[in-house]
Design a protein around this nucleic acid. Structure first.
Lengths: 121, 121
DNA sequence: AAATATACTTAGCAATACAAAGTATTTAGA
DNA sequence: TCTAAATACTTTGTATTGCTAAGTATATTT
């Protein structure tokens, strides 16, 4: 039941996390799925149907660009995604927005805890 | 431009914040809009068209219930929203989800900062 | 009297996480 | 060897939700 809320809470965050992973080095889709789960926790266990549309979106907005590289011992090449300058800049803005929202949430959620006791309502 | 991301990042969080405000005491729509902005920051400056659908949703899910109370010095009564037991329980679950997501985000966003320097890519 | 603030409602749009299905290669196990 | 699972990429469709915009009505201020 609460999965419904989780799903909504992740909105907008995933783009940021994918960009962050690409700050380090170029990566391909499947790799991003694995790294996200491993590094950000099980709650971010994406399905392909979630990640790839994110990548296409980021590419369309020119925050990343893609290139095919042949992989060792593989016949079919992999599609790698690379960060652009615009991507780096936007990522910084995204994180700022995230901080603002996260701080607002924590301020409110902790703030009222104290007053909770014995009110009408 | 980054408003686009802000909008998405707020998804799912607003329901939680509204519920949290109702933990303290019953409140009416307009009051919630004012309190949210005041207590959670300008980034949560909601329009009526955003808040009221949230309230209807919460009511339909029986997380809150509404009652009309006449206001002092007013001819028309105000519609107050009250927390239900189910609402209190769900709010706790929502906040858990939020914590998980927020921690995952911070872990990843700070984690990679160090490795950022000089990689191929 | 007019403008602004208060108060509630609805219709419609855009964005996005996800399920599900499809395709194809590679690796591991029986 | 044959099969199952993991790897890798893509597309279609659905549900949810924040927001704009518009409408209605009372209250307060100028």
């Amino acid at each position: 039941m609460q999965e419904k809320y989780e799903r909504q809470m992740k909105k907008g965050v995933l783009d940021m996390l994918v960009l962050q992973l690409l700050m380090v080095e170029k990566k391909y889709g499947y790799q991003l799925i694995m790294e996200l789960r491993e590094k950000a926790g099980d709650i971010f266990g994406l399905k392909e149907g979630t990640l790839y549309p994110i990548l296409y979106r980021l590419e369309e907005e020119e925050l990343v660009e893609s290139r095919w590289f042949e992989a060792e011992n593989k016949q079919i090449p992999r599609k790698y995604y690379l960060m652009t300058d615009k991507g780096r800049q936007t990522l910084a803005e995204m994180y700022q927005s995230w901080r603002q929202i996260a701080e607002g949430v924590e301020r409110l959620m902790n703030r009222e805890k104290n007053e909770e006791a014995g009110k009408d309502n």
